[in-house]
Each structure stands twice: as C-alpha cells, then as structure tokens.
Design a protein around this nucleic acid. Structure first.
Length: 279
DNA sequence: ATCGCAGCCTGTACGC
DNA sequence: TGCGTACAGGCTGCGA
C-alpha cells in the first residue's frame, strides 16, 4: 500500500529513469474512471505533446509538472503501480493508463483494485492545498508539529491518517510510529505531554526515513503488493515491528503483539508498551 | 470537530 | 479441489 516512502521511491526511480525532459507523444486510458478529472478524453488531449518539466512527490501524490504550466497528479491508492514497457508490448491485465514518451518507452499504470486516480490540473494546489505539512520537511519542526497535535482532540490513529493533518502517512507507518513512540492509537491528541508529542514527531520521521532507505514496504509477492518502478520489492517489511505481527513478541518488551480495530482500521500494538493512559 | 459507516474494487485467505 | 464469504485499505461523502 503506497504511502509516503513508497511514493517517494517511485518518484526517485522515475527521475533516475530519465522521465524528466521527455515529451508525452500519446496517452491512452482503458478504464475511464482512472482519470478523476477532467474526463478521460480531455486528459488524453490535455497531456499529448507536453513535455515533463519535473516530477516530485507531495504527500502520497506523484506530482508531474508539464510544460505550459499544467500538472498531472497520480495517486496510487491501494494497488497502483507504474512501470515501463516498450510500445510493442501487449497491454497486460489491470493496465488502465499509458503515457507514450518520445524515446519510445511507455510509462504504464497497473492497478488491480482500480482505486488509483490521475488528475490533470491547471493548478496543482487545488488538490495539494488540502494537504497538511510534509512530515520530513525542515519547516515542520517538533514544536510546530506539537502545536498542531495539541490543537486537536482526536484519537492519534485517525488523526495521523488524516492527510489534512499531516501528509503521507498510511496504516503501516502510523502503527509503526505509534509503537516507536510508545503511544496507544486511541490516545487523544490533546492529552499528550510535551515530551510525548516530541517523541511522536521523531518516531514518525524515523519510520518514514527508514522506509525510504528500504525503498518502501512490500508485504508479499502478490499482484496487490507494492512494487518499485523497476519491478523490485521494497525491503522495509523487515523493519516492521508490529504491523501484521499479531501474536509475535514485541521487540522491545516481549509481550504478544495485539491486533485491534481503531477508527475502522486494522491496528497493531504492543499492549505493554502502548497504554491508553489519559485517553 | 470528531466519529462511524457505506462505497469504490478485486485478489487473497479462510472455513467447510 | 472448489465454493462462498470476509477482508484488506485510501479516500470521499454522508449522517450522527
């Protein structure tokens, strides 16, 4: 499930593959709902002939700036994958969108569950403006994050998953960050002591950085699991301490890891290291 | 403001 | 082995 480290990995690989500077000579959409806005037809017309001026990540979005000042945003959601193919290669299963580049390569989008979305926008801020701060940005200091936390009264887990509060975290990295910080996912954000807020800030950055270094989390070998642009696996699964480890011993205290539902989401905690105190 | 739930999808894991 | 069913999860929109 692509979260910040996975999308960052994809962005880096696409840049390394020399996508920036290439011209899009043709686009094809075979599952129209893949394009959230505008219509699939208008999307195809709108990107054709444009050059890719830059490619970055914001939150879980891939941000592709085209010449002439318009933007393609890509959200991989659950199972979206980007990879290269030659123009001659037959369209494979679950491939819903293709950009043909002027060097003969095709950038293809495969998405088994069809939740992924592409946007063509005149102004990227119409989408990105709704996002909270980048967790790894130097502008988000421990103090600034602490103030944001203290200003809300929500359970930590759903709050950290809220992209308007902080951008880029998903189920995996939230569970890992809360375990690292020793905080219960149902703990209320305004009940933390200053030192705990700071610790959560550091834990979030730690698990995200580690995720990026490992090129993301690939949980299994199936179609629905994260793959890099080059078709590789991210190795961050080896770094997960609690996520999908119910019943295994906590690496810190040895207590059995527990699975529970918080905010309708599958959640993993160490019941000894992460108490509800104050919630 | 916060929370819960349905819906979007389909591969996967499970029970029988 | 095969069938049926629940589940996974990011995000949106709705109601409470």
């Amino acid at each position: 499930m692509p979260e910040l480290p996975e999308v960052e990995t994809v962005a880096r690989e696409l840049r390394a593959a020399g996508v920036v500077g290439r011209r899009i000579v043709q686009a094809r959409v075979s599952w129209p709902r893949t394009v959230a806005t505008p219509s699939a037809r208008a999307f195809v017309r709108g990107v054709k002939g444009r050059r890719i001026a830059s490619l970055d990540r914001r939150g879980k979005y891939l941000v592709i700036r085209l010449t002439g000042g318009r933007y393609v945003l890509v959200h991989l959601r659950m199972t979206g994958q980007l990879f290269f193919a030659t123009g001659a290669a037959r369209r494979g299963k679950h491939e819903h969108l293709t950009l043909r580049l002027d060097d003969g390569r095709e950038l293809r989008f495969r998405d088994t569950r069809k939740f992924g979305r592409w946007y063509l926008l005149e102004d990227a801020e119409t989408k990105l403006g709704a996002l909270g701060p980048e967790p790894l940005s130097p502008e988000l200091t421990a103090r600034a994050f602490g103030r944001r936390l203290a200003a809300r009264r929500a359970m930590l887990k759903p709050l950290l998953l809220n992209q308007a509060f902080i951008a880029g975290l998903g189920n995996i990295y939230v569970d890992e960050a809360l375990w690292d910080a020793g905080l219960h996912p149902r703990r209320k954000s305004d009940s933390l002591r200053e030192e705990q807020r700071r610790r959560l800030y550091l834990s979030i950055r730690k698990v995200l950085r580690r995720g990026i270094e490992s090129m993301g989390t690939t949980l299994g070998a199936g179609l629905t699991n994260f793959r890099t642009v080059e078709g590789g696996y991210g190795s961050n699964k080896d770094n997960l301490r609690v996520f999908r480890r119910a019943g295994e011993p906590c690496p810190r205290c040895g207590a059995a890891i527990k699975r529970m539902i918080v905010g309708q989401r599958s959640t993993h905690i160490c019941p000894r290291c992460q108490r509800v105190r104050g919630a």
